[in-house]
Design a protein around this nucleic acid. Structure first.
Lengths: 377, 377
DNA sequence: CCATTTGTTAGTTATATTAACTAACTGAAG
DNA sequence: CTTCAGTTAGTTAATATAACTAACAAATGG
């Protein structure tokens, strides 16, 4: 069963490719490849695409991966908008939509929206539910993927819900749930700026500050699934804290915190557009206070990064959420700060997938559970 | 070949155990277990130990792992003293010795000492070199295990040496090299306070500050083998830094830094005994300045831990080096600080193996490369 | 028609399985 | 005390699986 995966992996990597070449790439014998390929052709996972070219000898029969043999759905709910997509086995989106839901949103509402969304997407792409493998759903708040529950979600008020089993029962399909930032991390790893990078950290700044961690090509979640809660890091000056309150980094350098700081120095701060963008604009216009605040923010974000880099020595750090608005100039500024503090500065890149990241990650959260169909290792 | 490992693993875990029970534990069939066990008995890896007891039915033939079928050597050189040990396949030390080397110490000197040490240990334990699998060597400074080289070692002045191949050529045995703190981490994981814990961080404070990281039961080294270089973390007040100089945490809260701080407030600081021990002593005697300095140190160590915990959410944090001198009271004080900043405080324990940790870790660095003999997964 | 490459067929090997057996032992009925 | 049913341990034999090698047929260019 493992060699099937191996063959699929090579097939996807080098497609279109012949059986003989597959044998060379996988180190398996030609008969073995032939047999397994035939099996998978029967199952519809592989197609013969035509005859290839060669200078001498019999011409090869080229094979191709049939990514639409099965489908998955990926969804991301950010507490407000529900993104949904249908994707093939390569994680390529066939079609997608987004829908703003009106509060208050119960679990029941969400399930219904997912159900209806799935129907619409299937119809749109002219596919049937029989081909569906499962649905991945990214949710805001604290989730526990292992037991499929949501511990707490501030935006919806949900607490301790067995979301996965509830959804599976209603949707009639395997469901994978995870935290929204984790899904986005996965998205960038498989389809975005982090493709193929073994050790990477996805840093997200929004209402909160969090990180998704991929080590040795695997998502790292920690012992209590609390890894990446870098909002708790001690960055900048120590401040008095009241009992049970946490998150000094988050409290000072998340989006709301920066808004508060900006309001003190700028006359008109618009709540609708990115603070960082506004600060960058004013700084470029010559506003010294804005430039200073921006530098303070960059610097403290960099401090957080220094802590992560020195501990984990990753290849890549992906900046997302509010951070995507700093532009290439901002990236260079931060890179400059990093070089002051650590000798090994990793690649620093802006997230590439925008609002689709989480939805795409959700697609892959399902595909990851079917390596024998996708050829993922 | 993988089932052999599985059987050995179960055998070591449940020994003494019969073939029938092994089949149950490993989910393999009884004939398969019988065949593989017979093989391994032929090779001397397993022994029949005698007849077991049972209420009904035929009595089982109990099997035991023969840990002395092969041997490994573990060594740790801390820049000053060379610790050497001979160990069996369980990592149990058969005999060990330590020897102070006199500076300057060349690679040649070290090889010679290792060679002579090995001879002495073999003689002492009445074993032969034929049973040796390899030698693990922990070295101070920056090592690259992957290519077996040492990049820089301040205490000996070595730079860019292909230590592994040099040693292998001379000693005639496979050699595994690694950084001293990494070896200690491994030691505590396999034989010390961290046995069986999936996610743990070994924090070492000495001349420098460093950490060994074990995630999912595997050592994590980072992309450039620089993971755990937490001396670079930004802990406490930001300080001006000159170009190419790194390590704010290390500069302020490593052993030498604490000595410097202590000298300012205490009349007689002894360079020979632990600063922390001296500070604890004076604090207990009622010296307020000492108590304050101690608290400052504990607090800043805790800040560093907060950063690691929030990022990695480990089960366990092991305190070693200078930190072992804080005692249970110190541990509680730090735990108190941690609880102020993060909701998920992991176990916090003092390292258990003392100066033997590195040597034992070195033993396991070799054993890890022979899972088919040790049953390690 | 020969050299060369692709793909298949046939037979082999390695490693597991299941089913059925022998071995060894307990305990209770006769 | 003997005997035999019931139980557990370990082995043997036949079978299944999944790979391999060797040999060959198909296809093609020179």
């Amino acid at each position: 069963m493992l060699n099937r995966q191996e063959i699929l992996h090579a097939l996807r990597k080098y497609a279109p490719i012949s059986r003989a070449d597959l044998a060379k790439k996988t180190q398996l014998s030609r008969p073995c490849v032939s047999a397994l390929v035939d099996e998978m052709i029967q199952e519809g996972l592989i197609h013969e695409i035509g005859i290839g070219d060669s200078t001498v000898g019999r011409k090869p029969i080229l094979l191709e991966y049939n990514a639409t043999a099965y489908l998955v759905m990926g969804a991301l709910f950010d507490g407000n908008v529900l993104h949904m997509a249908l994707a093939d086995l390569k994680g390529e989106l066939l079609c997608h939509e987004k829908k703003k839901l009106v509060s208050p949103i119960s679990g029941e509402t969400l399930i219904q929206e997912l159900e209806e969304g799935l129907s619409r997407l299937l119809e749109q792409s002219q596919m049937t539910k029989e081909k569906m493998l499962g649905i991945g759903i990214g949710l805001p708040g604290i989730t526990r993927k292992r037991d499929g529950t949501i511990s707490y979600s501030p935006s919806t008020g949900w607490m301790d819900l067995p979301v996965q089993t509830d959804f599976e029962a209603r949707l009639g399909l395997p469901v994978v749930i995870d935290n929204d930032v984790n899904m986005m991390t996965l998205g960038e790893y498989y389809k975005g700026i982090g493709i193929g990078v073994a050790n990477q950290i996805y840093m997200y700044v929004g209402t909160g500050i969090g990180a998704g961690i991929i080590l040795h090509h695997q998502f790292y979640r920690g012992s209590r699934e609390a890894a990446g809660e870098i909002g708790y890091m001690i960055v900048g000056a120590i401040q008095p804290i009241s009992k049970g309150e946490y998150g000094i980094f988050e409290r000072n350098y998340s989006t709301p915190a920066i808004y508060a700081k900006a309001r003190k120095i700028l006359p008109h701060v618009c709540e609708e557009t990115s603070v960082i963008r506004q600060l960058v604009h004013h700084a470029e216009q010559g506003n010294v206070q804005a430039r200073h605040l921006l530098d303070e923010v960059y610097q403290h974000w960099a401090y957080g990064m220094v802590n992560m880099i020195s501990l984990l020595d990753p290849d890549l750090l992906i900046l997302s959420g509010e951070m995507v608005n700093i532009g290439e100039k901002g990236v260079q500024r931060i890179q400059h700060f990093l070089a002051e503090w650590v000798p090994m500065v990793p690649d620093l890149k802006l997230a590439a997938l925008g609002e689709q990241a989480g939805m795409i990650g959700a697609v892959f959260s399902v595909l990851e559970t079917f390596p024998m169909l996708t050829g993922q290792k």
